[in-house]
Amino acid sequence: MDDLPPIRETIARHGLSASKALGQNFLLDEQLLGRIAAIPGNLRGEPVLEVGPGPGGLTRALLRAGARVTAIEMDQRCLPALAELSDAFPDRLTVIQGDAMKLDHGEIMRAEPFHVLSNLPYNVGTALFVRWLCGEDWPPQWRSLTLMFQREVAERIVAKPGTSAYGRLAVLAQWRAEAKLAMKVHRSAFTPPPKVMSAIVHVTPTNAPEGVSARMLGRLTEAAFGQRRKMLRQSLKGIPGALDALARVGIDETRRAETVSVTEFVELARTL
């Protein structure tokens, strides 16, 4: 690792710049990257999936921590810089060129439990997060998610009922997992600096409530928060049996989605 040039020099040597179209913002502070890699705990020998490594700043920190990294990168310009890391850490880094939204992550990770650490591209971050949360099989193959988001999105993930940030992401992240805000990251840490602040969310799976379909919970939250200013009797009327289920569970149909707790959404999904 000490033989590698600073990541800033690598970026300059390969003529790289962050692509707005790909939602890229590069992190160059190696101390900060080391702190991010430490959030899940000891990664020595652990398989890690990284989406959107770019020139490899976080990848370096993960390799330094002893992880076995599989990185999915869409931007072909970054592949030579990542190849240098592969050469420096034989058999420790696998780079896959492609779209993470179209790939089977479980197959890529060879059905082995893995951690996900990523400075997610802004344009696909939320979609990937929802995908990792919404599988019917639980516990999932991933053991933890440590993900960089815009701070507003991160706050939605950890929000509590009755707050303006509480919504679908909070319910999906909290009904069978523990989500916490692990670190705030100032916009000045990135190159180029984004217009918004960022934060890192750390999610670990917990026991799933019995008799609840992830698909049904997803439908409920999508309908309820898709019209969050309307009463539940209006927002949920398109789901067969939902209004009867509200009565059976004891949820007043004049309430709005932002007042319904995670536990109440779970009970509603179970009843349906």
Rank of each mutant, 00 (worst) to 15 (best):
S261C: 11
A37L: 09
P240C: 08
R229Y: 06
I157W: 10
A111P: 01
R68C: 05
L33V: 06
Q97A: 15
V51E: 07
G167H: 06
S261Q: 07
Q150H: 08
T259E: 13
A165H: 13
A12I: 08
P209A: 10
A83M: 12
E222H: 13
L246I: 02
S213H: 10
F129Y: 11
N42S: 13
R110V: 09
M74W: 02
E107R: 15
V158I: 15
G45N: 11
K102H: 10
E178C: 12
V130D: 07
P80I: 14
C78R: 03
S235N: 03
L43I: 06
L145N: 02
R60S: 08
E73P: 03
W142H: 00
A38L: 05
L243P: 01
V196M: 12
E9L: 11
F225E: 04
L49N: 02
A245V: 01
W132N: 05
M101W: 01
G106A: 10
A242W: 00
H186E: 15
Q150F: 07
T191V: 15
N207F: 03
A88V: 09
E46K: 10
L217M: 01
E152W: 14
R248C: 06
K160I: 05
Q31C: 08
S144D: 10
R68A: 09
S118F: 08
Q141A: 11
G241N: 07
P53W: 10
A88R: 14
I251L: 11
A154F: 08
E258I: 03
I108A: 04
P113I: 13
V262G: 04
Q227S: 12
I157T: 06
T259G: 08
P192W: 10
